[in-house]
């Protein structure tokens, strides 16, 4: 059973008011089944609309094929830590991080430990998909989860260092949140590696509304 750690507010675009969501940790396989049960139909609905609009597959949201139930197999690794933002509707965003064996690549902290974001995704109804005019229901979830990764990094004595490999569509989003793009990593299918340095004050978030 996952644990409720904290509550935070994000913007509900429909009502223009703040919505309260729970931050949950220590997710179980059952939680990931619930994520997939909740997100699967919504994901398929978006894919159907993209197909009907003749949007080229290369322009689809890049995480369209993810399956969180399959990713739950990583829960057995001792270094895997999971978080989710949960509303009354269900899971709104999920993040899986690792506390080892990743190390910083950014000067001057090369070789020091960091929290590595293995996977992070918001629910399909929170995706921004301009080609079918879809706007997110809740915004700010991705930023909040990244801040959780930073807080975990501080609590682990990694001084806020966080690293990740980004899908191409999200690179600019991370850059707007204080990450430095260190370029493609040939050991990770050429995905860009980005890193947030130590002891960096919180960066202003973009006003575009795009929040993955």
């Amino acid at each position: 059973m996952s644990k409720t750690l904290h509550q935070f507010s994000v913007l509900d675009r429909a009502s223009g008011t703040d919505a309260t969501v729970e931050l949950r940790g220590e997710l179980t396989t059952r939680d990931f089944i619930d994520v997939e049960r909740s997100w699967g139909p919504a994901r398929l609905d978006i894919l159907t609309r993209l197909d009907a609009a003749n949007v080229h597959r290369a322009a689809w949201p890049e995480s369209w094929h993810w399956n969180w139930h399959q990713k739950a197999s990583r829960l057995s690794l001792p270094v895997t830590i999971t978080f989710a933002a949960w509303s009354l509707r269900g899971p709104e965003a999920v993040m899986m991080v690792k506390t080892a064996p990743y190390q910083a690549r950014l000067v001057p902290d090369v070789g020091k430990h960091l929290v590595y974001i293995d996977f992070i995704e918001v629910a399909p109804w929170n995706w921004t998909v301009p080609s079918i005019a879809q706007k997110p229901t809740l915004t700010g979830l991705g930023s909040q989860l990244v801040q959780v990764a930073v807080a975990l990094s501080v609590s682990e004595e990694f001084r806020g260092r966080v690293g990740l490999h980004s899908l191409p569509q999200s690179e600019a989003w991370y850059k707007n949140r204080g990450f430095t793009n260190l370029g493609p990593d040939l050991h990770k299918q050429g995905l860009a590696y980005l890193e947030r340095p130590a002891a960096q004050p919180q960066q202003p978030t973009s006003q575009s509304g795009a929040d993955t």
Binding site: L5, G25, I81
Partner: peptide, 8 residues
Amino acid sequence: MNTVPNPD
């Protein structure tokens, strides 16, 4: 409540 897990 905590922002991150705080195990015993």
